[in-house]
Amino acid sequence: MSEEHHITPLKTYLVVATALFFLTAVTVWASYIDLGSFNIVLALLIAGTKAGVVATFFMHLLWDDKKNATIFVGSLMFLSIFIIITLTDTEFRGAVNPEIKDPINKRAALYSTLPLTDDHGYPLDKENNHHEGDKDHH
């Protein structure tokens, strides 16, 4: 009966909301620190924590039938399958035959009126051997 439903105390909601605001501030702050590729990991960790908190408390998963939590976790699992297996293709193309790694034209036909550029935005018709070294910057 509905009387049996768990009623979350007001305090819990307020604490959770505060935590969410705090984590938002942390994620913005963290984005201004250069951590290399760890930036994205950190951003996703924080976002994951926030999402977990929302799901657990606001969406009442903590007190619900565990089936609901299973469904939710399941949806994330299927999404990870989709992402990870697709990445086994897109990240490993050209491992055997390097020709197939990249598109022939990196720029879409949309920009066909413009001179072609390399990864760095240099037009290809200019002699730009020097920027081979530029890659070290990144």
Partner: peptide
Amino acid sequence: IFLFPLFYLIG
């Protein structure tokens, strides 16, 4: 919560 860092905060 995911869209915000993924689009606005690419460090």
